[in-house]
């Protein structure tokens, strides 16, 4: 259960500040009245759950209490937990098997500037390497200064190959070259790093679509995964980011980075409630091993473990 303990420890800030605070006010108050609802609203919004999802959770509580009469604190918390689990859906991690749909299995990684794409890619590569897969990285950030160098250092540390081009080169061309190289070398997994871009810059989003198109022409059903890296410290703008990237690329999942440093893990709930895009991975630390497949049961369990 070492992994569960680690998750619990890394989510400790969200656990104490979000779920812990909720448990405290619910236990301290005793009955579900307007005052308690307002206190719960404050805690949920402070936890980045968002106005809309918060209203939904509290509305659900009120309804249950109308139907079942006065709820005991334990019941209030249980209903809350159940509602959160319902919103998060039934994502279960398949710890041991990360199925590869083709060779190479191509993963396109995108996101806003500074969310942690490159670091997350290194961690993702590590997950595949640990399962005995061969990995190739593609550095398609041809814009930011020293982006190549940054990924190159990770590639060296991981002992995997990397395909790059000159700064200013067409990123789609780099992706194409990398895919060709992966095919020629019989690599299992190709992970493509792209330049950070604000989701509102339509020309830059066009550039991403082109990368995706080029991959799709070269390999059937490619890219097989398209991941958006979101920074967990971002607030409700995460919704906007996910929506626009999804419109442009058709995301297969979200990689939520930097979840360990924030007390605002509520964003996971908001994302899942507002957009039906699965959270695939969560980043919970600065070490190479600190990326996990997202598992609703484990996540909710870690959050509610003390309450």
């Amino acid at each position: 259960m070492a992994i569960l303990n680690r998750l619990k420890e890394r989510l400790s800030r969200t656990r104490t500040e979000l779920i812990g605070s909720l448990a405290r006010v619910v236990r301290g108050h005793g009955c579900l009245d307007a005052e308690l609802l307002e206190q719960m609203e404050e805690i949920l919004i402070r936890g980045d759950v968002g106005v809309e999802t918060t209203a939904k959770l509290l509305e659900g509580l009120k309804e249950k209490s109308r139907a079942a009469g006065q709820l005991k604190p334990g019941q209030i918390l249980a209903i809350l937990r159940q509602q959160i689990e319902e919103i998060l859906g039934d994502e279960r991690s398949k710890e041991s098997s990360l199925p590869l749909s083709s060779t190479p299995h191509v993963i396109l990684v995108a996101g806003v500037n500074g969310t942690g794409k490159t670091t997350s890619i290194a961690k993702l590569a590590k997950i595949y390497l640990d399962r005995g897969r061969t990995v190739l990285l593609a550095s398609c950030d041809t814009f930011r200064a020293a982006a190549n160098e940054q990924l190159e250092i990770w590639a060296r540390r991981l002992g995997v190959g990397m395909v790059k081009n000159q700064p200013g080169a067409d990123p789609a061309a780099v992706a194409f070259d990398a895919l060709r190289a992966a095919q020629a070398r019989g690599i299992d997994v190709l992970i493509i790093d792209t330049a950070g871009r604000l989701h509102t810059k339509s020309t830059l989003m066009e550039e991403l679509k082109k990368i995706k198109r080029v991959i799709g022409k070269q390999i059937q059903n490619g890219p097989h995964e398209t991941l958006l890296v979101l920074d967990a410290t971002v607030g409700q703008n995460a919704i906007s980011q996910a929506r626009l990237f999804h419109e442009a690329l058709g995301l297969s999942g979200i990689l939520l980075a930097k979840l360990d440093g924030t007390a605002k893990g509520g964003i996971v709930i908001a994302i899942k409630d507002r957009l039906n895009i699965p959270v695939s991975y969560i980043g919970i630390g600065e070490n190479l091993d600190d990326l996990e497949r997202f598992d609703v049961g484990k996540f909710v369990g870690a959050l509610f473990s003390d309450s």
């Binding site: 402070r46 980045d48 920074d231 410290t233 607030g235 703008n237 995460a238 605002k264 964003i267």
Partner: peptide, 12 residues
Amino acid sequence: ADAMTGQEAVNL
């Protein structure tokens, strides 16, 4: 600080 920071902005 990132203009998109959520409620954590205050803590940091």
